[in-house]
Design a protein around this nucleic acid. Structure first.
Length: 720
DNA sequence: TACTATTTAATTTTT
DNA sequence: TTAAATAGTA
């Protein structure tokens, strides 16, 4: 056995974690401290040194990318493939279990997975069909409610309406939604986890079997687990299982979608005496960057506490640039990126991070002008594209006629004379007879007095039947090819004007090649087409292709988690934008924003620039804000302030169209963006003014007191 | 049924 | 500003 290969190049803390005895272990791994490394080496250690069969390990991650990377790295360390090692996402593993045990899970054998978009469509339809005011119950909110319940492991029957009519309504919708899914054999993402949990909870023998098999549970990004994921892990671990969880409480940024950092504390309660290892040595960033990150995150109360350090040098100071507006900010960043390239650096080593996607626009404009290639992360993924989902809906309907979500999607796509009226008729029939739309269509199509609608519906049904017949026995690739051609989809999109249609047709052709290169599990019992459909739902594909081009990377701070770049810009560091207005109100929200800031700072290896704009056009109108409070939390000695150069000052702008209408009070000297001081509220910036003379009021965004409207004649503001 | 005008709202995202 | 959803019109 070659212990050295597994242990070399590990520091003491990493080694302690990797070689820990077979006991519950919690690794608190700071940013850049070698988290994945520890996980990978732990797996290799268990297999190679402890001589455990790869079969007895289960490794779980949040993203497919992380799962693939982990497998690859374990294999490269062990120098052998580890096919029998279960590595996957929570959803992927749950799906695997449900396919194996669909009977016990009370699912149809060829159940289909629906994504968030499908789910929303179903809910929207449901709200309408039940004649519920969708103003009071927006589909998005209902969807959020349902998923939140599922994430907590709750079924409608577990819920109490608390005598709140709104809540009662939502519970009723949850129940109705469940029924639609049951009838259509549809499973959403949250349902995968919930079902998998119930599967084990209610089948003693099954649970015992998996407990016997999986002795070691390796968990990545543990701070991101939601209640049902944690419950699932705990159930599997049982009294004997040995969980090895790796996470960082300071990088928990997904509370809003159910993640609970508290599981880190809970872990120590559920597994008393669990070994806790902290990884604090950082191999990524300069000491200056780490000092800044440590100082910022130290302002949070709810944390385990840890301090990143490095053996490396202090490095450059963090540059803070105060831009006049978002254009100036973009110009500054573009100029720095030019320098970066001119000095012989690779563009892909530079990243511009921002809080919200809308910020990318100005940056992109600047980059296009300067002819700097860039790549924006997080666009539409391949399998999420409209035309792709249409094609998949045909395939799904062929596989299962009762799939109402797919039925609705394609019944009139391409248009075949089945309009809103006809669909409404189908829906009400389906509702009255508690059957699927397909069955309703059957009833209506056979109605001799149905008229034109009946014949259109009839034509649609025979098309589907024909496609089903014709694709039987064909290879996956040919099935897909046949369906997109004969369904009329290709023709439909070809007619679409502009470049869009061309791209759509190309994408459909791409789908055929995706089907061609898809390798179904030879041992799997599923029909290859169902496997392909599940794959499409669980792995929506890359957001943007061509990662190999030498491009500057643009992304949100959320999507930057886990990545690192020699040069990083944090753009739009202004109060209201970051921390975002909508999170700043409650302390927990603010702490999460601060963790996000910590994530952002720790992405930088060598150089970090922080920029903020005094004035920013947001949603069409100008807003004025103060530099983010997070900037102030960085120690002064880490920072070098860069003043805007006079000659880049306020870019030429057309004169105000209506100078008089919105003009600030000339005699008061108050203008938008003016910094002011108030006796009680402190310092702030003028956001807005209205009225004149004695009635004039101004809206001021105060650093500490928030945004307030003040009557000018009483407020006694000092100009600054 | 398809196209056009108007209204509305606007973090963060993986599966 | 702008994208998307809805309402209204040809």
């Amino acid at each position: 056995m070659d212990v050295t290969r597994i242990l070399e190049n590990l520091n003491d803390a990493q080694r302690e974690a990797v070689t820990a005895p077979a006991e519950p272990t919690l690794v608190i791994a700071g940013a850049g401290s070698g988290k994945t490394r520890v996980l990978v080496h732990r797996a290799a250690w268990l297999i190679d040194v402890e001589k455990l069969s790869a079969q007895s390990l289960l490794a779980v991650t949040f993203t497919n990318k992380a799962a693939a990377e982990m497998r690859a790295r374990i294999e490269s360390l062990l120098k052998v493939p580890v096919q029998h090692l279960w590595i996957g996402t929570f959803h992927g593993l749950a799906h695997r279990l449900l396919r194996r045990h669909w009977r016990e899970a009370d699912l149809p054998q060829s159940f289909q997975i629906i994504d968030a978009d499908d789910q929303q469509r179903i809910i929207k339809r449901l709200i309408r069909s039940l004649d519920i005011d969708d103003g009071r119950f927006p589909p998005r909110e209902v969807q959020y409610f349902i998923n939140a319940q599922k994430d907590e492991g709750l079924r409608p029957q577990h819920l109490d309406d608390d005598n709140d009519p709104d809540r009662r309504q939502k519970i009723a919708l949850y129940e109705a939604y469940e029924e639609v899914c049951r009838r259509g054999g549809l499973v959403d993402f949250a349902e995968l986890l919930l079902r998998a949990h119930e599967l084990w909870r209610d089948n003693e023998d099954l649970l015992a079997h998996y407990r016997r098999r999986f002795r070691h549970l390796l968990v990545d990004e543990f701070q991101d687990t939601n209640a049902i994921q944690y419950a699932w892990l705990r159930l599997l671990a049982g009294p004997e299982g040995i969980p090895f969880a790796v996470g960082d409480d300071d990088q928990s940024i997904y509370r809003w979608r159910g993640a609970r950092v508290e599981h880190i504390q809970q872990f120590q309660k559920d597994f008393p005496g669990a070994r806790v290892v902290k990884l604090e040595q950082n191999y990524r960033s300069t000491a200056t960057i780490l000092n800044a990150a440590n100082a910022v995150i130290a302002h949070n109360n709810e944390r385990m506490g840890k301090n990143l350090w490095t053996e490396g040098a202090a490095g450059e100071p963090i540059r803070v640039y105060a831009a006049y507006n978002e254009r100036d900010e973009a110009d500054f960043i573009v100029a720095r990126l030019r320098d970066w390239s001119a000095q012989g650096n690779a563009r892909q080593d530079a990243a511009v991070l921002y809080r919200s996607n809308a910020q990318s626009r100005v940056l992109e404009e600047g980059l296009i002008n300067a002819q700097i290639p860039y790549r924006v992360y997080g666009g539409l993924r391949f399998f999420e594209r409209q035309e792709i989902k249409d094609a998949l809906a045909y395939l799904r309907l062929i596989s299962n006629r009762d799939d109402d979500a797919s039925f609705e999607r394609i019944v009139n796509r391409p248009t075949r004379g089945i309009g809103a009226r006809t669909v409404e008729m189908l829906r009400s029939y389906a509702r009255a007879n508690a059957c699927s739309l397909w069955r309703a269509a059957g009833a209506i199509a056979s109605d001799p007095i149905g008229g034109r609608a009946a014949s259109s519906v009839n034509a649609f049904m025979s098309l589907i039947e024909r496609l089903a017949r014709e694709t039987q026995g064909l290879s996956l690739e040919n099935q897909v090819d046949h369906v997109i051609g004969m369904s009329g989809l290709i023709e439909f999109f070809r007619k679409e004007k502009g470049e869009k249609g061309v791209t759509r047709v190309e994408n459909l052709e791409e789908l055929v090649s995706a089907a061609k290169s898809f390798e179904p599990d030879p041992a799997g019992e599923m029909a290859p087409i169902d496997e392909f459909l599940a794959h499409a739902a669980l792995e929506a594909g890359e957001g943007q292709a061509d990662a190999w081009d030498d491009c500057v990377q643009l992304m949100t701070m959320h999507s930057a988690k886990g990545l690192e770049f020699p040069l990083v810009f944090l753009a739009g560091m202004e109060d209201g934008l970051f921390p975002h207005q909508r999170s700043a109100a409650d302390p927990a929200g603010l702490e999460e924003e601060r963790r996000l800031c910590y994530v952002g700072i720790t992405r930088a290896m060598q150089s970090l620039y922080i920029t903020h704009a005094e004035q920013r056009r947001l949603h069409g109108s100008d807003s004025y804000s103060l530099p983010s409070r997070f900037i102030r939390e960085i120690p002064d000695e880490c920072i070098e302030e860069i003043r805007p150069k006079v000659h880049v000052s306020r870019p030429l702008r057309a004169p105000e169209r209506r100078p008089a209408a919105r003009a600030p009070e000339p005699e008061t000297g108050i203008r938008l963006g003016q910094h002011v001081r108030h006796g009680k509220f402190g310092e702030g910036v003028v956001l807005n003014c209205e009225g004149q003379g004695a009635h004039a009021r101004v809206e001021v965004n105060f650093e500490t007191a928030g945004t307030k409207w003040l009557v000018l004649s009483y407020a006694n503001l000092d100009l600054m």
